[in-house]
Design a protein around this nucleic acid. Sequence first.
DNA 1: CTGGTCTCCTGATCGC
DNA 2: TGCGATCAGGAGACCA
Length: 341
Amino acid sequence: MQAKGATLPLPSLMPELPEVEHLRRTIEPRLLGRTVTRIEVRRADVCKVWRASAHGEDAAPSASRGLSSARQGLQRLQPDPATLHAALLLGHTFTGTQRRGKELALVAAAAGCARVLCVHLGMTGQLRWHATPPTFAPKAHVHVLWELDGGERVPAAGSKIPGGFMTFADPRRFGGLACLDSAGDLAHRWRAMGLDALTTPPDDLAAALVAELGRANRAVKAALLDQRVVAGVGNIYADEALFAAHILPRKLARRLSPDRVRLLATHLRAILIRAVEAGGSTLRDYVNAEGDRGQAQTLHQVYGRGGLPCLACGLSLQTAQIAQRTTVWCRACQRDRRDWT
DNA sequence: CTGGTCTCCTGATCGC
DNA sequence: TGCGATCAGGAGACCA
């Protein structure tokens, strides 16, 4: 997976939606029914604790900016250690997981009260399961450790259900943990996010993209990366989907025909599904809950291939910064052509 | 309101 | 062999 040619960009570091979904599927069975018995916080600043604020609970945040504005109605706390440990689910038993875009929510309950731990992996984050106590290598950047006991599930005859350990590590710290009080707060947090690019039914995803891109006065690549437009599309899959749909990344989003946008939605969804099936795509840092690497990097048609021949036509692939992201495309295959609608 | 730009942070890599 | 420069990028903060 080494990029040897001098012109080759580095492979991606970051986990995207398929990696997060793969992680969710692999870690959920480890967590369900298990209870957090101990927490070790090695870097508290990766944790943000949110509480529903007293006032203005339901002013629809649609008018505000960014995903953080969806957190209007939520208020950041500066917790003492005991509060932080409770917020990180100490004493809680895991009941489920959810995902929206690149965000993974771990749901747990204690004394009938549910709490939610939202995990965002950023570029270099890892959430991992360990059957035995993990060691902390100096450069591992493990920020939080959870110890879990086996819970009350019925074991195979005569055997005891083992406990385990979960760690959150993130060298670059673009990721983080958000602690929420309830499922309602999670819904609130996710309200400003667009529809999930993977699990939304095809027709709904296409309709949402037609509406959102139709009013976006910026490059389609920039719009795709905006989590309010559609949740879960990062740099890799934005480039891949635009290539598949024959759309130039600099094309003004609102100038795309609805048919072309529907084509884009179809390809985007198919590419994400394929990547999930392949076990997540990335690469150097991404590992699933078991510590295995994903296998999907071979699926990339353009990402990380700037200057190399287009796999469809052989022309050298273009590279430029668009929306502050390295963008790769084929100027022949993605040129506007009416016969592609 | 919108969209564009800066910033955070560390490790891998490359040129000298 | 070592060291500094460069690059990667999700998303919040900030600005025009």
